[in-house]
Design a protein around this nucleic acid. Structure first.
Lengths: 124, 124
DNA sequence: CGGCATCCTAAAAGATACTG
DNA sequence: CAGTATCTTTTAGGATGCCG
């Protein structure tokens, strides 16, 4: 048991398998950010979700949280060395996405127009 | 509009952002597989989910489907060149996961035992 | 054998309101 | 400012059964 991981990939997915985590790591890879900055960077994410995923990332040793214990609050997030190595492993994937952004955008549009109403029925 | 991609990463997540797709791509990276082989390789995945994700991957130009049009059916899946390049971009991440499998397994155990208050009561 | 249709559950995500 | 609590919505995933 317990690493039910069939390959390194689902091991990764275990810690990164949620909508915003890769983005969080990506943004923190550039620099340390305060909570509010991070929220704005990541985009349209709610406090609940961001705080929750952040907490998990901290628990998983990927993100470090530094609380200045002030009023008003001041909390900074950054990557741990472990998280940093992860962010580097993401680089290749990120570059692939950037490189194929055009194709991916087309794909996105295509599935956006026919996802529910019409299954993609690739008659092939 | 429509590539609301803030970086290459969510572009990738758009096509790979589901539980089994990375694994499917991973297994097909080794060799062409028949539907049944793939299902067994991937692990505990239902037909509905596998077929669905496979269809999306085909629609997205990542996986190629070859139907021999026979009875009994014989269908083979393989990566397209596009999918192949994606699988290579996943390599680094996969290696990271493999390399850190031990830490990740610990993390998995920890979150399994004490994440919220009590574990996911999934008797499974 | 390789699916697809239906139904169902669990988990993720989101909106909103409120607090130290 | 940085969250937490609560509720609702959305989505993914799974079990089963049928059909070509």
């Amino acid at each position: 048991m317990t690493h039910p991981f069939t390959c390194g990939l689902d091991a990764v997915l275990f810690v990164m398998g949620s909508k915003w985590k890769p983005l969080i790591v990506y943004h923190l890879a550039h620099r340390t950010l305060r909570y509010g900055e991070l929220r704005r960077s990541v985009g349209k994410v709610s406090d609940k979700v961001l705080a929750q995923q952040l907490k998990e990332l901290v628990a998983d040793g990927i993100v470090a949280r530094r609380d200045f214990r002030q009023i008003p609050p001041h909390v900074e997030y950054s990557l741990t060395p472990f998280g940093s190595s992860l962010s580097q492993a993401l680089t290749q994937l990120c570059e692939w996405g950037t490189h194929h952004a055009a194709e991916l955008a087309e794909i996105a549009e295509r599935s956006a127009s026919g996802t529910k109403g019409e299954p993609v029925t690739s008659a092939q």
